[in-house]
Design a protein around this nucleic acid. Sequence first.
RNA 1: GGAGAGGUGGCAGAGUGGUUGAAUGCGCCGGUUUCGAAAACCGGUUAACCGCAAGGUUACGGGAGUUCGAAUCUCCCCCUCUCCGCCA
Length: 436
Amino acid sequence: MIDLKDLREHPDKYRKGARLKNVAVDIDAVLQMDEKRSAAMREFETLRAQQNKASGEIARLKDPAEKKAAVARMQSLKQQVQAAQEQSREAESRLEPLLLSIPQPPDDDVPVGKDAADNLVMYRWGEPRQFAFTPRSHAELAQKHQLIDSDRGVRLAGSRSYFLVGKGAELHNAVLRLAMDLMTRQHGFTAINVPVLVRESAMRGTGFFPAGREQAYRVGEEHEAEDDVRFLTGTAEVGLTAFHMDEVLDEADLPRKYTAVSTCFRREAGTYGKDTAGVYRVHQFDKCEQVVICRNDVDESKQWHKTMLGYSEQLLQKLELPYRVIQCCTGDIGVKNAAMFDIETWMPSRFDGRDDASGYGETHSASRLYEFQARRLNLRYKDASGKIHFCHTLNNTVVASPRILIPILENYQNDDGSITVPQALQPYLGGCERIG
RNA sequence: GGAGAGGUGGCAGAGUGGUUGAAUGCGCCGGUUUCGAAAACCGGUUAACCGCAAGGUUACGGGAGUUCGAAUCUCCCCCUCUCCGCCA
């Protein structure tokens, strides 16, 4: 949710922001609606004030006849008040969806661009491995060692579904455990287990609705009342960020640092035929997420953004997987973000043999939202002087699996088809050093 | 799924039609006192919106209604808790 006052004062900022993000919104229509609402509200409040005043006077009248006359005089005012209230409410209810649809303008330091093709490569870590043999894809490796069973997954749950089996499941659990341990033990994040089945208000509050609604699974029968409907979350960001929804925190308790592993559900609507081999794009996966809720301070937000990005890099470095860090351009950061970094990890099977860029696949996404989510969630804090502010929120992937199994299997394969278990994961697999 | 109880300010808890945005207690903040602290005493302490201000409007789970006027009355919904049943 953007700041309505700011929209009134700087409409161009939002026009430009929407244009840079390739989002079609009619700012003028919003401003008109806002004007209409304000007028209706003032009208209603004036009338209501009159009514309240008269009511107080009636209460003080002792003489029954006088009282009766005064009450009779109020009849017509009552009609007017009701009509004005009706108008005011209608204007309000028409303004709200318009406001929800206005994207957060991208930050000044975000490169301008149309889509993912215009994203900026910031830097790389590690060198893509040169194979002395023809490397196998993760799908082949998984098949060979019976780590991932897509055939049975599809039979049971449809396309983009899978079973993780044996060491496949162990590897999956291992990376998530490693991620969780890193965030809690080393970086002081509080571990949380979040609901993945949430109300619409949580989805709207975190900015996944209304834009993006088609990506979420809706749970509930058709005949059920809207209030009984729940949605499966596509990330623990929802639970972690909405944890303090409608609360006023103490500034002294900020920043709040939370991490969670949760199962994530995504319809992947509009991606038919894309990334169908293996487990790159699936409907259900597990992810360790990090969320920071901090003071309303742009510099602090930017600082946290970098820091959180660093935590994820640290995880990839522990796994010794080559990656590159991308600054996403204005057209690729989505409606809710002010800025976004992606981390792409080297996946040999995606490499086309010519352009290195082809071999990197997205594994992480770090978002900086300023007060956009906090406004929608009504998530605030009180500063030392007692003033109330909206918090800032940020989030980033720590690790998502099975997608991360792709670079692990492919980068750690040996010429005989066996797979070396990354050192950092061996303790989580009972010391197992090699698969196959 | 069956039966019952309840939802009021940070918390506890009054309040059943009129100056109650809300008693009282706790907590919190400030002051007096003290070498300092505790205790005691005094004062302050919900938020959103409109307004330069004075001031005004809204909100007692949510919605609808009755009324000149609703925390208080009526209807619908939601949520929480207890007991029974079922269940990981």
